[in-house]
Design a protein around this nucleic acid. Sequence first.
DNA 1: TCCGCGAATTTGTCCTGGACAAATATGCCG
DNA 2: CGGCATATTTGTCCAGGACAAATTCGCGGA
Lengths: 301, 301
Amino acid sequence: MSIAAVERDCGVPKDTLRVWERRYGFPNPLRDRHDERLYPADQVATLRLLRRLVDAGHRPGKVVGRSDEDLSVLLRQVGVPAPQVVGSEAKQVLKILGAYDAAGLREVLNALLMRAGLGGFVAEIGPGLAEAVGAAWSRGKLEIHQEHLFTEQFTTVLRSAINAAQGAGLPRRRPRVLFSTFPQEPHSLGLLMAQAMFTLEGCLGISLGVQTPIPEIAAAARAHEADILALSFSSMIPAPQAVAGLTELRGLIPDTVEIWAGGACPGLRPKPGVSVLRALSAIGPAVTAWRAREDKGSTPE
Amino acid sequence: MSIAAVERDCGVPKDTLRVWERRYGFPNPLRDRHDERLYPADQVATLRLLRRLVDAGHRPGKVVGRSDEDLSVLLRQVGVPAPQVVGSEAKQVLKILGAYDAAGLREVLNALLMRAGLGGFVAEIGPGLAEAVGAAWSRGKLEIHQEHLFTEQFTTVLRSAINAAQGAGLPRRRPRVLFSTFPQEPHSLGLLMAQAMFTLEGCLGISLGVQTPIPEIAAAARAHEADILALSFSSMIPAPQAVAGLTELRGLIPDTVEIWAGGACPGLRPKPGVSVLRALSAIGPAVTAWRAREDKGSTPE
DNA sequence: TCCGCGAATTTGTCCTGGACAAATATGCCG
DNA sequence: CGGCATATTTGTCCAGGACAAATTCGCGGA
């Protein structure tokens, strides 16, 4: 596996891979005949563990180079804060994924959705499932294609539910919300779940899909006369980049447009003009508050 | 703007930016006090033009360093090859996109779908629309966020139609088809349209979504006991990479599994064990032929 | 004991300039 | 005019050095 492939796969930049090798002696890739690094599969797996640990706040110097066993132990400790969340639903989903049962997976997701309702599903079950699958993958318990399958089925189920909710009676009204993610963020699940919550609140939602360049997000906000920009950040995106992007975006749009950021990205902090919604369940109250502010405020145009 | 920001924004890798500067004298960034490149906004804009021209097949050595006027002229020429295909539907869609009318866009797409049926829509209208939007974007007539909006609405409409078709009566039966794209291919529209066609034929479809690593596609084929791998290639993916990937994939799966490739990628050619379906309308007959072969063949298991 | 603040360490990203393979164009011959 | 060998172009990789931003440490004062 070439250095570029590892960068894509583990999310560790090429420069960082080289400097880790220089400083800590790991990874320790083979070389092809032109002296280019070739990473064996097991080292790539270890790198994925390392990425999780570093994201969780461990310092590279302390963890790079240690054995897989050590890392697993640390990872379990990291996981401790939220292990009880791996409820029976997640276990069931992982079991079905293990059996490669695509149709069964969709049935289960649909059943969960029916039982909890769209709001309950998105607020309480969805994030837990996504996290459990992500964790299982990074621990090597799931293959990439199983994670893809989960994402695809989850997307299908959620999209059709959103569709149904949108069609259902409720008149759509403001705030007008624009959804997207930054260019470095390809994950759509968080965005979709947020969209579901806003839809349930009767908002006017417009999605640009994932990975919109920042100036384009600003242009779209103007074009669509958005009240709120809803942005989703997974733990894949480096926190400094997220923060820098938010600052840049804030400078490109009028003060009347709010920015609401959410997702599992650890370093996400509220700033002037940027709200951070830690959980999807916070969206409902936040929309209510927005509408109250709006009603109280100056003449609506 | 730092080199990393330019890489994100224009999609030109850092190494390439540096080597263009070394070889062609452009871009010609300022330096901050620590000798780091700072790209002025106008050079970044030119780089975006260059990126499009290079994607369209121009050689960097011929275009990097030329004036913005020259580049604009070339860009317009790039768009010329396919203007006559723009039917009335496409014109309507472009007009609505120009007005930033998200809801209207969805209504129009839905109306077109209803009028032509899913099969007719996908075979005759969809690709034309996608191509017209792509062409308008590359000629600078549409902004990126408008193209994103189109993709998102198109996806929504198609997915819900596929969903409905899947739910409708018809018992699902073989072939069992696995859908995905190669890692360099992020476009999902072609894949979705193909999925619609296979669904209409009553096939058992399983989608992995876009950008699955090639060994993972192979692993998934085994795990799901697929009969056919359906792969979609847009004109974004370099032809040599597509061909190399197909060869690699062919070697990883048993001969009994067929590979069907489709899409706008120019250099796509059939090879032993790899069929190329030029148009989506070819899917129906191909499935019929597959079933005939299957029935005539050895004992079904 | 705890808290702030300056010093020391760690860490990621950028630099230069060289190398080469894959992709593409060019020229030659049948 | 089409197919193949050769030449050129082009992207990505390498090494090893540098430094700023982030983080931790150590110390003196409340």
